[in-house]
Design a binder for these strands. Structure first.
Lengths: 100, 100
DNA sequence: ATAACATATAGACTAATGTCTATATTATAA
DNA sequence: TTATAATATAGACATTAGTCTATATGTTAT
């Protein structure tokens, strides 16, 4: 029933080119915020903002080590959300499923 | 190289609860605009706007019949975009892929 | 305790998005 | 041709989202 809203927080998170770029960086392994910053023209608070959006959507996770925070991709989240979504729109053979 | 931007137009399109609801309706088969409208509180121009966004992203297609326009889900688009995206973030075994 | 560094938060500003009303467009009917 | 119905477009308005500067928080070193 609230499936649409649930998937939307994920899709909103990945519907930004800069956030996708962050995700692509993290797909190779965890990185600290400052390391991520080096790949962008944006200022650090903007990066932190994007990381916050990704984290709220469970797309990334983080751990603290000393003064640094290392972010990593939650690959399971990405694939489960995508495959869930795909399935929801798979061709039905006759019987409907979702209600109004 | 422009993969992120490309996928973003799709994700932007599906990152809205009302548009996902439209997609769920269309997953059962094609519908005219006025038929879609009956499922929402929004006014018709808003529905047309959302249909336009979905159409630009290739998520839906339409055909005209008399004064009505029937929209249908482009199921292939949904699944190919989702699986492309998943794959892009699949665990790499060592070699990197996407460049900066 | 103080300084220096890494990150997060707050608040301002701008741009993009969603919704509305009004109207234009296109197709059929009278 | 005129009227009616279905859809799209234009423009106004409010809300949301992205980026910035300034600053707060937390951690390590001196």
């Amino acid at each position: 029933m609230s499936v649409e809203f649930d998937c939307c927080s994920f899709f909103k998170a990945v519907a930004d080119a800069n956030r996708v770029k962050i995700m692509l960086l993290l797909a190779r392994g965890e990185m600290s915020v400052s390391a991520i910053c080096k790949h962008f023209k944006m200022k650090q608070p903007s990066i932190s903002h994007h990381l916050g959006v990704l984290k709220s959507a469970k797309v990334v996770e983080c751990r603290k080590e000393g003064k640094e925070v290392f972010y990593r991709l939650n690959q399971c989240c990405v694939s489960s959300r995508c495959s869930d979504f795909m399935q929801r729109f798979a061709e039905k053979t006759g019987k409907g499923a979702a209600g109004d």
